[in-house]
Each structure stands twice: as C-alpha cells, then as structure tokens.
C-alpha cells in the first residue's frame, strides 16, 4: 500500500506543484563563532496543490527552516524556493503560518484574535465577525468569543490559533509542530478537528512534527529528513483512505506497514544524531535551526 519514492519530485507529480524547493542549501553561522553549520543540504521537494504533507525527522534537522524558507522569512544560501512557480523573495503573504506556541495576542479577545488577519487586510467589521463566528463555531468554541486567551485552555488556544490562520484562506498553510506542547488526548481531538477543517477546503498543508503516528494519521505524504545537515531521506505515500478516523488510526489498513518503515528510517536517524551530539556536546550542542 505504501509506495516509497526516492524524492519529492518522485513519480511525475500528477498535479502542479504549489510549493517547490529545488536543491536548497541553508547554512547558518552560529552566534559568536566563525563556523558555518549546514542546516539543509540539497533539499528538493515538490508539494502538489491540495495535499497534506508532513515533515518528520530528529530535532535540529532543519524542519522549521524549510517552513521559514517557504514563508520567505529567510532566504536559502543556495538553490531556489518557488511558490506557485515564482521565486520566493521577501515575506510570502500567500501562506499562513501556525507556530508551535499559539502566539495569540493576550490583550485581544478570542474573536479579535481570530479576525486579526482580516483586520490587517481591511475587511469590514461585519464581514469579519460573520466569518470568525462561523469558524469559531466549527471548532466548538462558540460562547468563548469574548474570552481573553489567558482564560482559555491550551487546547482552546491552539484551536484559535489554527482558525486564525485558516480564516484568510491562503492556498498554503505551514504548521510548525502545532500540537507539540499539548497533552495526548487534546492532541488527538485537535488532529481530528484539523482533518475535518482541512477536508472541507483541501488547502495545501505542510506540517512539521516529530510524532510518527500524527504524521501518518494526517498526511497524504510523509517526508523523512536525516539528522543535521537535513537532507530528504525518503518520501512516503501514506495511502490510507480518507476520511480517516484519527482515534483508531492504528487499525487502518496499511497503517502498520507505513509505521514500521517510517520507524526504521527514523530510528536510524535518531541514533546518528544522538551519536553525533554525544561527540560534539562540548563543541556546540545547540541546533542551528532558526
């Protein structure tokens, strides 16, 4: 069931790619030193419109760096990042960005937070309210519109942060370990929420995570990255039919096959990065990921 392709461009992408990385290198110079470290090495990816992709790999393998490059928040040292066929130069406002921390503005109510992007785009208040109310309702937060973030639970804040990004309908959404700090149950519920939201609109999602099961449950494809410098090790086609049931994803046909192969890859990389870390722990243990 799980097809494995050598790289993202793989089996002659059936649909036009909306995000494309062509042989991208990214090197950072760690603060205070003269030593450059390679975060990404020869990364090529081609994400077709409307697909849900996950990127997994050991910490410090440059997963977040990829998202920052696509968002135009940083530029590649070598190679090209394309969005919709155009080279990304400067901040790319066609993508939405969901960070690991919910980053809600504490002085805004839930509704005002959700409407932020529309406000920046000059959408009239009535229209904003209509759209935010609808989304707030869809993730089960109705009744909390006037609450401040400090009065919401972690899971509620996370939902707010996701619909804040969904509301302005960018074709591509980047998510950087969005469910990282949540407890296991809340994670599951939110994964379910996310899938439902996504299935309605089918926008392109790039989802960084270090949770194997999460990656399989959500994605069409899973990109496995190698330990620093980050390279693309393999791209897996998950192939579990949709709509999916994240709560019972373990029983889905093909799950254990993908899981085993992914785990074999990942555990290799974890071992490599652990060895390396033990080796140069004295030197510079900090990851170069920005």
């Amino acid at each position: 069931m799980a097809r494995v392709t050598a790289n993202g461009r793989g089996d002659a992408a059936p649909r036009a790619a909306v995000v494309e990385l062509v042989s991208v290198y990214k090197a950072f110079v760690a603060g205070g030193t003269r030593q450059a470290k390679l975060a990404l090495e020869d990364v090529s990816l081609s994400v077709p419109r409307g697909e849900f992709w996950s990127i997994i790999g050991p910490s410090g393998c440059g997963k977040s760096t990829i998202l920052n490059l696509i968002a135009g928040l940083s530029a590649p040292t070598d190679g090209t990042v394309l969005y919709d066929g155009r080279v990304v130069r400067g901040v790319n406002t066609d993508v939405g960005y969901v960070t690991q921390d919910d980053n809600l503005l504490p002085w805004r109510t839930l509704q005002a937070n959700v409407e932020l992007a529309l406000e920046l785009r000059g959408v009239p208040a009535a229209q904003r309210a209509e759209r935010s109310r609808e989304l707030i309702g869809r993730v089960g937060l109705s009744g909390f519109e006037r609450h401040y973030p400090a009065e919401l639970s972690g899971g509620m804040r996370k939902r707010a942060s996701i619909i804040r990004t969904l509301i302005y309908e960018t074709p591509v959404i980047l998510m950087d370990e969005p469910f990282g700090p949540l407890d296991a149950q809340t994670r599951l519920v939110l994964q379910d929420d996310l899938l439902r939201l996504w299935e309605r609109s089918r926008r392109t999602i790039l989802f960084v995570t270090h949770d194997l099961v999460e990656a399989i449950a959500l994605s069409d494809r899973v990109v496995v990255m190698s330990a620093a410098p980050g390279r693309i090790k393999r791209v897996y086609d998950v192939g579990i039919p949709r709509p999916r049931d994240v709560f019972h994803i373990h029983g889905a046909p093909g799950f254990s096959l993908v899981y085993d192969r992914l785990w074999a890859d990942i555990s290799d990389e974890i071992a490599v990065s652990r060895r390396r870390r033990a080796g140069d722990a004295v030197e510079a243990p900090e990851a170069v990921e920005s």
Partner: peptide
C-alpha cells in the same frame, strides 16, 4: 561533487556573515 558543493555553501555562509 556533492561534498565540494557543500564546502562551497558553507564558505558562502561564512563570507556573508563576515562581510
């Protein structure tokens, strides 16, 4: 060739930083 290219990229990053 890949290794040479890697060196090249690293050098470029250091240069840029130094400049």
């Amino acid at each position: 060739e890949a290794l040479a290219h890697r060196e090249h990229v690293l050098e470029r990053a250091v240069d840029e930083h130094r400049r």
